[in-house]
Design a binder for these strands. Structure first.
Lengths: 204, 204
DNA sequence: CCGGCCACTGAGCAAGCGCTTAGAATGGCC
DNA sequence: GGCCATTCTAAGCGCTTGCTCAGTGGCCGG
């Protein structure tokens, strides 16, 4: 029994046609950008007529929002999982960065939409997503602050350090492709070493 | 005697009206993105009629290209300058990152267009810009490789490390604003410390 | 076999797009 | 003053856009 990619990515979206539209949207938005993508592009990539989009989504922007929110929730879940599972700051950051980077590599198409099409969102929807982003940054910052206090990390400013850590992870989406030499997991591991080094751990 | 900002940014562009259009373009492209910006937006922000744009630029895309190429040339010049002035890898990277980051903070509006509106460029123009980007990455990679060989740096893979260094610098453009607590120069200095730490120097 | 329901289509509308064109101002040079 | 080059505008053309709506086919309970 095989499962479609879209069912894997958005198991709670019904019906399957709506998921196909989201997948087509992701690919179009990632390649050309939101504003350069037409509803006709999306619909025909999903094998339907332009009007079919409006059966499942009230607008083109709503489709973007569905994609963006889901992506942000997935990455937030990764970060939360690391915080919940590992108390010790060094190992927590190691797991967090490894997962975060691996996700941005494996799902680089989605991640590109999530990270680089933010300002195409309508105001209200942007607020929802911004709240998720703040929470992600807050969690990272707290772990770094904690590690700084115990002496595990040596950083001038946890706020700047947290932003730098996220920059490293986020930017992976921009350049990673299927033809990259490393698997998402291997890249995640390498990046977690770089980050721990950057944060000034004694034994990287 | 006062000088306009645009004359400071693009001293070789004539006449002043063309520079005003570029400035208006930068601000519009940075805020809304290239495709969401209309030629009417740009023209009216520069205080002129829509048709005036076409006196100085053959198309909207040509305006973007002028902005993008100039920005890339400026950042490449920064990197080249560091390589030319400082032979020793650690100090070379320190200067390079400090300047690169400070530029992306001070010119964050331009930098946002330079870094995030690439795929709006027509194919031929994109090639020109891509070549400049490759050169920047190559220079960074070479310094890291050299420092790795002499034992000044300790990195698993210079290619990945170079990309990480650039990711840190580029991403500054995304979040820096005039209200940020640090001056561009202070941020550059802080980031250069983070990068040297990341590259595994003994005395960060 | 029927009737309502849901997903979907074909056609098309109003608005906005990049860009063009004809012509009006302006300033320098004889 | 007469002439040209340069720079800008008013108007608008042809096209594409996001989205709508009347209608169609297929499925399901009865």
């Amino acid at each position: 029994m095989t499962m479609s990619l879209s069912a894997d990515l958005w198991p709670d979206v019904q019906p399957e046609t709506a998921r196909r539209l989201m997948l087509a949207g992701v690919e179009s938005f990632a390649r050309r950008g939101y504003h350069a993508t037409t509803t006709r592009d999306i619909a025909s990539a999903a094998g339907m007529s332009p009007a079919a989009l409006y059966v499942h989504f009230p607008s083109k922007a709503a489709l973007l929002f569905a994609i963006s929110r889901s992506g942000h929730e997935q990455t937030l879940a990764l970060v939360r999982n690391a915080v919940a599972k590992v108390q010790e700051p060094v190992e927590c950051i190691r797991l967090m960065v490894a997962d975060f980077v691996a996700w941005h590599a494996r799902r680089h198409t989605i991640a590109r939409v999530v990270q680089y099409e933010l300002n195409a969102l309508p105001e209200q929807e942007l607020e929802v997503v911004t709240e998720l982003r703040r929470e992600i940054e807050r969690l990272v910052r707290e772990v770094i602050t904690e590690g700084s206090a115990t002496g595990a990390f040596t950083v001038a400013d946890p706020r700047t350090a947290a932003r730098a850590v996220l920059s490293l992870g986020v930017d992976v989406a921009r350049w990673y492709s299927e033809r990259s030499r490393q698997t998402p997991e291997a890249l995640g591991k390498e990046y977690s070493e770089l980050v721990l080094s950057m944060l000034g751990t004694r034994a990287g």
